[in-house]
């Protein structure tokens, strides 16, 4: 008789322990996810800033007359302006268009403005890759069953990849 009571107590204890471990595991996952969301937000802010820096550097080159002809200047300046316009749906396409414009025109071989554009383009590329890495990790974790079933993401909106052409302008590689 007393053996049976002991067994029941052990089983109950084990069940409670397992539940506790499960809750702790879920809490740990939620915490991981929370941290990833925070990193996503930070990476997005860095990416936005890098994009603005590149856009301003491109505008400066266009306005300086370094491009040699006003048509090239207008093309670059217009593409740069487009990236600063508030149109979230077209946001990444505008960045790709600026990349394309910078690849089409003939940039001077050297000079402070070209160096600053090259630096900004390099940093934008790095920022985009870092952003997408953390977004990929976040999306992977959000996709796990435990996260979906227990709604561990809460109200946080899913981050999205920044998909655009981040090639650096030709002729500027290595100048920074």
């Amino acid at each position: 008789m007393s053996e049976g009571v002991a067994l029941a107590a052990v089983l109950a204890g084990a069940a409670v322990l397992m539940a506790l471990v499960g809750v702790a595991w879920l809490a740990w996952t939620a915490n991981r996810l929370d941290k990833l969301h925070l990193r996503c937000a930070a990476a997005k802010a860095t990416l936005d800033e890098a994009a603005i820096r590149r856009s301003l550097a491109a505008q400066e080159i266009a306005a300086s007359g370094d491009l040699g002809d006003p048509a090239s200047a207008l093309l670059v300046s217009d593409a740069a302006t487009a990236t600063q316009e508030p149109a979230p749906a077209d946001r990444w396409r505008a960045e790709s268009d600026l990349t394309a414009a910078l690849l089409l025109v003939e940039l001077p071989d050297s000079g402070p403005r070209v160096a600053s554009l090259a630096d900004a383009a390099r940093r934008l590329m790095i920022a985009r890759r870092i952003h997408n890495d953390v977004v990929a990790s976040t999306l992977a974790l959000r996709g796990r069953r435990r996260v979906r079933w227990f709604r561990l993401a809460g109200g946080a909106t899913a981050p999205s990849m920044a998909v655009f052409d981040d090639r650096e302008p030709t002729g500027t590689q290595g100048s920074c």
């Binding site: 505008q59 266009a62 306005a63 007359g65 006003p70 200047a73 207008l74 300046s77 217009d78 740069a80 302006t81 487009a82 600063q84 316009e85």
Partner: peptide, 17 residues
Amino acid sequence: NLRSRTLSSLAGVLRPT
């Protein structure tokens, strides 16, 4: 067409032209 912001950022080149 021309974006107003493009014209203002490129005024130094475009206006005289």
